[in-house]
Design a protein around this nucleic acid. Structure first.
Lengths: 190, 190
DNA sequence: GTCTATATAATGATAGAC
DNA sequence: GTCTATCATTATATAGAC
């Protein structure tokens, strides 16, 4: 049987699209309300704290989503090489084959934005530190020493996010598809 | 004798810092005026077109800066391998060793922002397409076939921008230093 | 839960003095 | 070239009816 998203999950996804496309400051309540087919007042019913609370909920949701779709695969019982590949494919799925940007990367940028609390940034940074450690431990399992494993983990994440960014700069989401294929090959033999 | 920046160049650099830190929508005229030690009205004297004109001038400036510091080195008379290394080092210098973000990447994101004209995005995209072609041609000179050279160029740019982004996500600009060293090694033998 | 209407603050932008 | 003062618009946020 299929998965039925709750109405709140639908709402969150509609809001996420606006934040991803326009950034924190570019996402106005009018934009958000229009995307959700709601009035601004109704948005305040769902998120009494306004935009900061929306962003906080979206960040939590995005972290859970990326964890479930990609990093989850690093904790399986398969050999480490296979887990890394599964992670890469999961990340590919998370970005919708390069057509959707990562909300965490988008929201992380605005360091000093007005209502975008510093704690949000801290949450994102802490999560990425954690993810990096998880990925590095898999590379250690595969035989790499600690420092090398940390470097490999960093390079893999940079390659994925860099490919996503470059595809966006060239306005060719397809470039991400090819880039991920090459990243896959590069990390197939650790 | 040292290089003396004009007052307008100083102004542009002050404004650039705000746009890089806060993005297009997050950079308010109050922010910009404060950073430049000017009133909002004075900013309109220098840029009668307001924020869009500022952004246009900043994009032109950033393109010239990145061209001069990094991509310029691809057009030398040295062997292609040395030119690629010089380009990587130039990009490293452009980002101030990973401590400064690339304005072009920042402004490219906000696709549908209010006053951020679509033509600005087109300018950036066209410039990156051009830079990619230049870099690919150097890889071709080094012996790679057309398609492989294009892939190598894409992967190098993705690696550099990805490393910059990841260092920012982890709030550790130092990570960029190490990442660039590894990118250097990886592309030393084409 | 959703809406209309409204309050308050901030933003982009201009007029005009110096 | 710079400023203060001001305007029109938009933004965030709330009140209160249904």
């Amino acid at each position: 049987m299929g998965y039925s998203p709750t109405t709140k999950e639908i709402l969150i996804d509609q809001l996420r699209a606006v934040f991803v496309a326009r950034g924190y400051d570019g996402a106005t309540l009018s934009n958000l309300a229009r995307a959700a087919n709601l009035s601004k007042a109704s948005l305040y019913h769902h998120f009494p704290g306004g935009k900061p609370e929306m962003a906080a909920a979206l960040v939590r949701h995005a972290i859970a989503d990326l964890q479930r779709k990609a990093f989850q695969h690093l904790s399986g019982s398969q050999p480490p090489q296979q887990r890394v590949i599964a992670f890469i494919d999961g990340f590919f799925a998370y970005t919708d084959a390069g057509q959707s940007d990562c909300l965490l990367a988008v929201l992380n940028h605005h360091n000093t934005a007005t209502g975008n609390t510093a704690s949000q940034q801290q949450t994102i940074t802490a999560q990425f530190d954690d993810w990096h450690a998880t990925l590095a431990s898999v590379f250690e399992e595969a035989g790499a020493k600690q420092k090398k494993a940390a470097r490999q983990a960093h390079d893999l994440l940079a390659a994925l996010y860099g490919a996503l960014l470059m595809a966006k700069m060239h306005h060719q989401p397809q470039l991400f598809v090819g880039a991920v294929k090459r990243i896959r090959k590069r990390f197939k033999t650790l």
